[in-house]
Amino acid sequence: MTAMPDQDVEMGRAPAPMPNKIRTQHVSVYYGDKCAIKDVSLDIESNRVTAFIGPSGCGKSTFLRCINRMNDTIDICRVDGSIVLDGTDIYDSKIDVVQLRARVGMVFQKPNPFPKSIYDNVAYGPRIHGLVSGRGETDDVVEASLNRAGLWDEVKDRLQDPGTSLSGGQQQRLCIARAIAVQPEVILMDEPCSALDPIATARIEELIDELRANYTIIIVTHSMQQAARVSQRTAFFHLGDLIEFGDTEQVFTNPIEQKTQDYITGRFG
């Protein structure tokens, strides 16, 4: 494990700025004629948890899905502007989307383990990217990934059971283990706790905080408490516009924009 860069970041203390991992400039997304995201520019800092919040339909998930080009799978979707990951534009025609997605992993709203064993679920990514050869190496990667996702102790005796046999919270941690098994640099999380109970949610939130040491994390959430608990930076979207983006503490305690104020105090949303 690499050294934890800023373990001292807690709510109530302004975090020291980190180098930018992702820069997005003038990103607009269209579904057919409909504009889902309008001219959004923001920078994602390395080894931080950045939260996207906003009411339903505000485009936060759409924007998240631009960062690993998942929107490519939707025929009518078009993305303008540039998204730069470590100095390379990911929408450049030379970029191989397979490699991009190996660097930018994703965890979805609903746990979606593949119809395979727990072991094969985790080994799926390393195998298709040729990161492992032989049984021994695969075993090591599976164990390490499940360990990092905090699931190893619960499943080590039943690795050959189907992934769908786990509980909802375990399935979601399996999906996180699956994502980190290919050693991504960025993990995108699209409302990862919305289908889970409070205890499972607390486990995932703890896990997100631990993963921050090694990965840059972007999380979309409906829960403002969750955003406040797990993130260091928060972006507030409304109707496709980026309204406000800043340190989580500042956004929640002293928002600049009236709309942000209204949203976080529950006046709409």
Binding site: M70, V97, A102, F108, C175
Partner: peptide, 21 residues
């Protein structure tokens, strides 16, 4: 669709997704 999304998000190609998921 969530299974397809999951596989594509892992960087799997279409044929890998079809065959394995």
């Amino acid at each position: 669709q969530s299974l397809r999304d999951g596989s594509y998000a892992m960087g799997a190609t279409k044929s890998e997704t079809v065959r394995q998921v």
